[in-house]
Write a protein that binds this DNA or RNA. Structure first.
Length: 463
RNA sequence: GGUGGGUUGGCCGAGAGGCGAGGCAACGGACUGCAAAUCCGUGUACACGGGUUCAAAUCCCGUACCCACCUCCA
């Protein structure tokens, strides 16, 4: 059984055949650190984290590179608006992004290169392109360097578009461009409006990188001229990925063998970056939901499916995940075991997480039915590990000492009440027993009577 | 104008020609003092109109609506 995945470039599910046996090189476009991360942003992080985990499970030696764009127009604009130095905004938002990834158990990439750290590599690549006749320095003295799309007949191959069918951006300043669709490899420093710290020396004068060149340069540096998988959000297909591929191939680098794109999360039918967004930033959502619940919600949809975000759906997901957790609690301490075949088949089929979860729930049911749930629990843990959803994973963070003391304190109080309730039940004073249970429930704690006596746990959904 | 994607039961969400994925909710039953949890059972879903086929949610043609991208975007 081989791993198959959907390749956006060929528009079909294909067997994954790595360039080098046993190894997988993956490059994913990370974020531009210019605002607080929201649910949509982390979907990409979670989806490609599942890819990374699955490749590792399959035994590949994975090199996973996820970049950070830390200089661009938007960063300069927003930092100016907020009265911050641009790199100050970048540092703040990067910290938030890291916290969001940690909260969702997104494993760190092998390396996380930043654009500003790779200007020399970009300059080399641009020089190669100029030498080969695929790029030119603008003749208007702006210091810009453009990629010449007309010089590259395959331009448009990734997204199956012809140059003549493309609309030239209305807002694109035609300045020194030969064709309006030519895109910037290097942007000359605009003395009047841009800080000096946002300019780097180059053969074409001080300036900063164009958006696309960083990914080509960094992918080349860490993964080589040819590598296996390139990923990112669907919106990046064009122009970003098209341009990355064009400039890399025009420079003689074969670039990615497979292209993977995750779909959107929308709210009220709109992409998140367009809508309100405030209530959907990761810190805001984590006020009400645990990271593991949000991750479960994201993993429950296929990565290529559009998700319409709602708190109602997130509530449901949290309740569903609770079913898995309560099964594990009942099963006690168990070591992860083998993955069921059906689960492996689902994951091998283009990371079919929904089908994989269906298998997981089937095993949970079997375990609930069994006298000894240990074998099922072992399988469930193995599946959860692959999906990054094992509640016992230390990555979810050990309870802080304050949390632990609080839990211990609640335990003492609830146990006291449960003893009273047990006594009342023994006396057949059910009115008192039920009143105690209601009181505990009102505090958001669920009571479960078991043959070994009552136990308590937090109710699902809200923290 | 060009290029993609979508519309599935009360809700979420898979599937891609033939046994009704799975979850949530609901209802009935078992268990329980009653609940909860758990288990068993209950559904004649695939936007609309045509067509192909022994058989269509799935393929073809057409229609409607929605979304994304076309140089800021996960």
């Amino acid at each position: 059984m081989t791993f198959r995945l959907y390749d956006t470039a060929t528009r079909e599910v294909r067997d994954f055949v790595p360039l080098e046996e046993g190894k997988a090189g993956v490059y994913v476009c990370g974020l531009t650190v210019q605002s607080e991360p929201h649910v949509g942003h982390v979907r990409s992080g979670v989806d490609f984290d599942v890819l990374q985990r699955w490749l590792r499970h399959l035994g590949y030696d994975v090199t996973f590179i996820r970049n950070v764009t830390d200089i661009d127009d938007k960063i300069l604009m927003k930092s100016a608006d907020q009265g911050l130095r641009w790199y100050e905004l970048v540092a703040r938002m990067k910290r938030q992004l890291d916290q969001a990834y940690d909260a969702l158990n997104v494993a760190p990439p092998t390396y996380e290169p930043a654009a500003t750290g790779h200007v020399p590599e970009m300059i080399v690549l641009i020089q190669e392109l100029i030498a080969k006749g695929h790029a030119y320095a603008a003749e208007d003295g702006s210091g810009d360097v453009y990629f010449d799309v007309r010089s590259w007949p395959q331009y448009g191959e990734l997204t199956h578009q012809r140059i003549d069918d493309m609309e030239a951006a209305e807002d694109a300043d035609p300045r020194g461009k030969r064709d309006p669709r030519d895109f910037a490899l290097w942007k000359g420093w605009k003395k009047e409006s841009e800080p000096e710290t946002a300019a780097w020396p180059s053969p074409w004068g001080p300036g900063r990188p164009g958006w696309h060149i960083e990914c080509s340069a960094m992918a080349g540096k860490y993964l080589g001229p040819a590598f296996d998988i390139h990923g990112g959000g669907v919106d990046l297909r064009f122009p970003h990925h098209e341009n990355e591929q064009a400039q890399s191939r025009a420079a003689g680098r074969p670039f990615a063998s497979y292209w993977m794109h995750n779909a959107w999360i929308t709210t009220a039918g709109e992409k998140m970056s367009k809508s309100l967004g405030n209530s959907l930033t990761i810190p805001a959502v984590l006020q009400k939901y645990r990271g593991i619940e949000l991750r479960y919600y994201l993993v429950a949809a296929h990565y290529r499916s559009h998700v319409e975000f709602s708190f109602e759906a997130l509530d449901e997901a949290a309740v569903g995940f609770r079913r898995i957790e309560s099964f594990l609690e009942r099963a006690g301490t168990v070591e992860p075991g083998e993955l069921p075949e059906a689960f492996v088949a689902a994951m091998n089929d283009d990371l079919g997480t929904p089908a994989a979860l269906a298998v997981l729930f089937d095993v949970v049911r079997a375990g609930n039915r069994a006298d000894d749930p240990t074998p099922q629990a072992a399988q469930v843990l193995a599946m959860l590990d692959v999906l990054g959803l094992n509640p016992a994973d230390p990555a979810w963070g050990p309870a802080s000492s304050d949390d632990q003391r609080l839990t211990d304190a609640v335990d003492v109080l609830v146990r006291g009440l449960l003893e009273q309730r047990t006594r009342a039940r023994a006396d057949k004073d059910f009115a008192t027993a039920d009143a105690i249970r209601d009181q505990i429930k009102a505090a958001g704690i669920a009571i479960t009577d078991t043959p070994d006596g009552p136990t308590w746990s937090l109710e699902a959904g809200t923290k």
